[in-house]
Design a protein around this nucleic acid. Structure first.
Length: 847
RNA sequence: GCCGAAGUGGCGGAAUGGCAGACGCGGCCGACUUAAAAUCGGCUGCCCGCAAGGGCGUCAGGGUUCGAAUCCCUGCUUCGGCACCA
């Protein structure tokens, strides 16, 4: 072999030729179809959030899906039986918007989008098991939503209630989690959310509030765990019973229950506030107050709540002309109705303690109500208050609190509750912010709720044998957003299953978050016709080992799914308490302008175009290389050329080890001071040290440093290219290790190069992706010498290269003899010499 | 306001108690080329200096430590979440 470039004889790296070819080949070999019944290998269920079929796969999908695929391939190389399914979250609003705007059928719109997205997903070269695909708008899927609903109904976990619900003018009702921001807008369309009184279906998820606070057995990212904890919002305190006082229009004696976290402040209650929706408002309001109270309540209830935009908003409210009696001291205190008290939290009524609550303080100031301090640090009892004193520090005592005065605040609070509890006027109580899950939606494109309204029998569940309740295929929106089911006589009219009389179907459909609350169980038996899930499969494959997806659903999907699994468990359908063992949230890729990518902003990055230009392997690797996976950030394609160059260099060292570049003065020459044997050892050491580090990076999903280390190894090999050791046994070993390490991340180029290298003599070809992950040769990776940084008083002054096993005394002597060290010491004798981290560093301390 | 995450070269980032800036982008210089592209090699935190070398440097200020980007306290900025939750 002459020492000239073989470039002319070596084909160029052409991903557009390689990638489709290997994707077809993998399909033919059924490399990605998981044998779910195979229990001989460790099962590894790797789940990634299924996409909404908006029409196009965008770069954000690549950002979550391709590293997930790298995990799948990495686990397979460890012998695991990996299941990586994919499907589509196919119900939901955009299909209806398209239908209304463009007069297309929602199903057709959705299915054609899915076709396009299947093609795009395949271009990633990901190992999705398409045999397990689930599409939620398929009746074979949504019938089981209906089946679950009927089971929940039987078990008392689903119920219908009339209450004030959050109402979006476009989307109809919303669950509480789907109302966002201080201005209370819809999570999906951004419209301002109103309140309406409606009969709606709920799932009784508050039953699980305490259990949902327990995250043992699942590894969630901390921010998600904290968000869920805050969302569930457990508060401990007491429920106190106040009685109404007799007056000229009312006999008194009605009970008003309030929830408080501060029973220690009970003596400071100087008025009471009921929420506008509180059931006692109407009954207690004095005749001469009626007109004003009704006007206030009417306004508060219909208010779009835009007025609440500012938290600085002045408190409003009106007195209802009745008093309550404070149970601790018999004092009469006036009752107000005010919208700063929420109907849905606690009991919808509060005792107001203006001295120790900011909101009550503001209200008292505005209405000239008394403010009485009942908690103080000792000695400051008489200090005047110019704002609510809410601080909670040790040593506070009760003041102005009758026989409880002088007690520490915490203890005083407990004693007050205990004392009132003796005759049933108080009890310890816990309240949650979490509400039951409102699942009714006034939309066509969702799962019909399987109940029938009969004039004689009331609400009658659809018999299980009649499932699914099919969505009609033809749909006429008549140009408006009103649910077309409400006009569809063929759908509406039905015989009552109970009395056979005329009846009407429920026209509400289910929140699409129902669909996504159990889809990974269905992946395990997507075609099962006699039940939603296959018990054996679920038993052996779930909880899911690893779930990957965005954090934007922290208190929506990620909470609903936990609730759903607990409901399924209570029905005996699954054994586990939690759906997944580990959840990882990747970051979000923003547009180049730092804003969310959206067609309207024109900042969307099209992955198809990048794939055409660089190939899927480059795009995959670039997304992994950009930065930490959980970080995301604004899109910038400026570094993608560097990643593409890296793959070209891998190509070159694999196929053309003896080539030399004319621009390199040192081409073909070993580094100074290295003989053949030393160079061979260097190459092996570099490869095995890289393997050690890269293995660790894969385990921890640190893909950016994984790629960086492979680049380093490639640069090292490039340095030895064209030298006498290139192409030798050690070189070949290093190249093979490089290809193995790169294979999960860049599957096509590594498969191609692996094939071109050819199988070992006498062995048939096998995919690189079926190869076992290599083992580190610790002897080869060991270092013979090490460079030790030398500090004087913590400042770097010199570096010495020593044998790895050198003992401390020897090292010290060596270091102290160095010119630079002696200069830095300037004749002073060392006080201490620190040997850090097993000889990693020496620090000489001198006064 | 409350909860959370984060602030490191021109840029993406690395280092989570021990050599700050790995790796890549960008930039500069060079090789190859008639030329350009591609490719290859070198340099590239800031300041002083011809150089050797020195000083400064991880949002700001303080602290702990032989030693701090990393731990603690105070403050600032950016991003995400919550929205009168009694």
């Amino acid at each position: 072999m002459t020492a000239t470039s073989d470039r002319a004889r070596v084909e160029r790296y052409d991903p557009s030729e390689i990638e489709p070819r290997w994707q077809r080949r993998w399909d033919e070999l059924r490399l990605h179809s998981t044998d779910l019944s195979n229990g001989s290998r460790r099962r590894y269920y790797l789940l990634t959030m299924y996409p909404y079929p908006s029409g196009d796969i965008h770069i954000g999908h690549w950002y979550i899906k391709t590293p997930t695929d790298a995990i799948a391939r990495y686990r397979r190389m460890h012998g695991d039986n990996v299941f990586l399914p994919i499907g589509f979250d196919a119900f939901g609003l955009p299909a209806e918007n398209a239908a209304i705007a463009r007069r297309v059928n929602p199903r057709e719109w959705t299915m054609s989008n899915i076709d396009n997205m299947r093609r795009q997903l395949r271009s990633m070269g990901a190992t999705f098991d398409w045999d397990a695909e689930v599409v939620t708008c398929d009746p074979d899927y949504y019938r089981w939503n209906q089946w679950f609903f009927l089971q929940f109904l039987k078990a008392g976990l689903a119920y219908r209630a009339n209450s004030a619900v959050d109402w979006c003018p476009n989307d109809g009702t919303l669950a509480r989690e789907q109302v966002e921001g201080a201005d209370r807008h819809c999570w999906r369309c951004g419209a301002k959310v109103e309140k309406r009184d409606l009969d709606q279906w709920y799932l009784r998820v508050t039953k699980y509030a305490d259990e949902l606070l327990d995250f043992s057995g699942i590894e969630f990212p901390d921010p998600v765990r904290i968000q869920q904890t805050n969302w569930i919002g457990r508060s401990e305190g007491g429920e106190i019973v106040f009685a109404t006082a007799p007056s000229d229009h009312h006999p008194g004696g009605d009970e008003i229950r309030v929830f408080t976290t501060r029973p220690d402040t009970l003596f400071g209650a100087t008025f009471m506030v009921l929420a506008p929706e509180h059931p006692l408002v109407e009954r207690l309001t004095a005749l001469d107050r009626r007109a004003e109270v009704e006007a206030y309540v009417a306004q508060a209830v219909t208010e779009t709540e835009i007025e609440r935009l500012s938290t600085e908003r002045e408190k409003t409210g009106v007195p209802i002309g009745a008093d309550a009696i404070n149970p601790v001291n018999g004092e009469r205190i006036p009752i107000f109705v005010a919208d700063y008290v929420l109907a849905g939290y606690g009991t919808g009524a509060i005792m107001a303690v203006p001295a120790h609550d900011e909101r009550d303080y503001a209200f008292a100031e505005r209405f000239g109500l008394p403010i009485r301090r009942v908690v103080a640090a000792p000695g400051s009892e008489d200090e005047p208050l110019d704002s609510a004193y809410v601080a909670h520090s040790a040593g506070e005592v009760l003041v102005n609190s009758g026989e409880f005065s002088g007690l520490p605040a915490d203890e005083g609070g407990r004693r007050i509750v205990d004392w009132l509890a003796r005759d049933g006027r108080a009890k310890a109580a816990v309240t949650y912010r979490l509400r039951d899950w409102l699942i009714s939606r006034q939309r066509y494109w969702g799962t019909p709720i399987p109940v029938i309204h009969c004039e004689r029998c009331g609400i009658v569940p659809v018999p299980e044998a009649d499932l699914p309740v099919l969505l009609p295929d033809t749909v006429d929106y008549a140009g408006s957003g009103v649910n077309p089911l409400t006009r569809d006589e063929a759908f509406l009219n039905v015989a009552c299953p109970s009395c056979d009389g005329p009846a009407r179907r429920e026209t509400d459909t289910m929140d699409t978050f129902i669909d996504s609350s159990w889809y990974w169980y269905r992946y395990l038996s997507p075609h099962k016709a006699d039940g939603p899930i296959d018990d054996d499969m679920v038993e052996s494959w779930t909880p899911v080992e690893q779930y990957t997806g965005g954090a934007e659903h922290a208190v929506m999907h990620l909470l609903y799914a936990r609730e759903f699994t607990k409901m399924m468990r209570d029905l005996g359908l699954v054994q586990q308490n939690e759906p997944w063992k580990r959840v990882f949230n990747q970051g979000q890729i923003l547009g180049a302008d730092g804003e969310r990518m959206s067609k309207s902003r024109g900042n969307v990055q099209d992955p198809d175009e990048l794939v055409r230009r660089y190939g899927a392997d480059t795009v995959r690797l670039f997304l992994m290389f950009m930065g930490p996976w959980d970080q995301g950030g604004p899109w910038s394609g400026s570094g993608i050329g560097g990643v593409h160059r890296f793959l070209n260099r891998v190509w070159t060292i694999t196929l053309d080890p003896h080539g030399r570049e004319p621009g390199d003065a040192d081409a073909g020459i070993l580094p100074a001071g290295e003989d053949d044997a030393a160079a061979r050892a260097q190459v092996r050491a570099a490869a095995h040290r890289t393997l050690r580090a890269v293995t660790e990076d894969y385990e921890r999903f640190h893909f950016n440093t994984m790629v960086a280390r492979l680049m380093e190894l490639t640069n090292t090999l490039f340095r030895y290219r064209g030298t006498p050791i290139a192409g030798g046994a050690e070189w070949k070993e290093a190249v093979r290790l490089l290809l193995f390490m790169l294979a999960p991340a860049a599957p096509h180029i590594t498969e191609e190069l692996w094939e071109r290298l050819g199988p070992p003599p006498g062995k048939p070809w096998a995919s690189i992706h079926a190869h076992r992950w290599p083992k580190v040769d610790e002897v080869a990776a060991a270092e013979a010498t090490r460079e030790v940084p030398v500090q004087v008083n913590g400042k770097l002054r010199d570096k010495v290269t020593v044998a790895t096993g050198i003992d401390q005394a020897e090292l010290e002597a060596l270091v102290l003899a160095r010119d630079k060290v002696r200069a830095a010491l300037a004749g002073r004798a060392p006080d201490r010499i620190i040997h850090a981290g097993g000889g990693r560093l020496v620090n000489i301390v001198v006064r």
